[in-house]
């Protein structure tokens, strides 16, 4: 058990955001946090490495309570990739080298440079080393941000929507790289996600948030059509396509693919369960 969360509660001003959150994560696991917009996925992620300080509850990493650790020590154990990173007139290499910050004393050592060099090769982004990051595409920037978190050499990696800015090819590429590095180095990954299909394909365990707390938590078997509808309020179908589990919203189309007139229920929602 590498990360343990118990009785976590977070309030923003007087508004409760998270309540009674408890789960634990083991080495080598990829955990997806799922749930609708605004349910507190990002907040939960930020509570795990003390970017936000929870109102109450315990988070422990590798057996140490997180509020007993120095910020730098937390950064040596947990890496974090936010949804959005700022750019500037610096090269990709500079940007990734920044990930060595928690390990740097007065200045970078040869070892730091070697680690960053190797990260560029591992991620297959060698061509970006001397590109300025303010001229990069969203996908390239995301690759740089994730590479930065990896050279931090953390035990746990927190990713906030790692694939939302990426096209299909980049999504797959990044998640494959994350997957292989998790296997090779036995670290744990916690990521928030919107795309249920990508989550189902790459994550080992799932945490579904609803109404400030964990609705359900577990492996692939907990992801059922009923649970997804309960969390997202949208009826879905789950099936298999060539052995891969797929989730799609129940269709508002009729058989030949043409849109029907979108019906509404009594609450005004456009989604109505197909009878």
């Amino acid at each position: 058990m590498i990360l343990n969360v118990d009785e976590l509660k977070f309030m923003y001003r007087n508004k409760g955001i998270l309540d009674e959150i408890a789960f634990s994560i083991n080495e080598g696991e990829i955990v997806a946090i799922l749930g609708p917009n605004g349910v507190g996925k990002t907040t939960l992620l930020k509570c795990l490495n003390r970017i936000l300080v929870p109102k109450q509850g315990v988070v422990s990493v590798c057996g140490d309570m997180i509020d007993s650790l120095e910020l730098m020590e937390i950064a040596r154990r947990i890496g974090y990739v936010p949804q959005r990173v700022e750019t500037g007139r610096l090269t990709g290499f500079d940007a990734v080298l920044l990930g060595r910050r928690p390990h740097i004393g007065w200045d970078v050592s040869e070892k730091d440079l070697r680690i960053v060099e190797s990260a560029f090769r591992t991620f297959g982004i060698n061509h970006l080393r001397l590109h300025y990051i303010d001229e990069m595409s969203g996908g390239e920037l995301q690759m740089i941000a994730i590479a930065r978190a990896f050279v931090q050499e953390p035990k746990i990696l927190l990713l906030d929507e790692p694939t939302s800015a990426l096209d299909l090819k980049n999504q797959i590429e990044i998640l494959h790289r994350i997957n292989s590095i998790v296997e090779e180095h036995n670290i744990a990954v916690v990521m928030t996600m919107h795309d249920l299909n990508t989550a189902l394909r790459y994550a080992d365990r799932f945490i579904l948030l609803k109404d400030q707390s964990i609705h359900i938590c577990g492996d692939r078997s907990v992801i059922t059509a009923d649970e997804i509808e309960a969390v997202y309020g949208v009826p879905v179908m789950i099936g298999e396509l060539a052995g891969v589990t797929c989730v799609i919203p129940q269709c508002l189309c009729n058989g030949n693919g043409k849109k029907k007139k979108i019906p509404t229920d009594e609450e005004g929602s456009t989604y109505v369960r197909n009878s």
Binding site: F93, V116, S118, F150
Partner: peptide
């Protein structure tokens, strides 16, 4: 993770 890099 990445110990085998060369000097850039």
């Amino acid at each position: 993770h990445f110990a085998d890099g060369e000097l850039p």
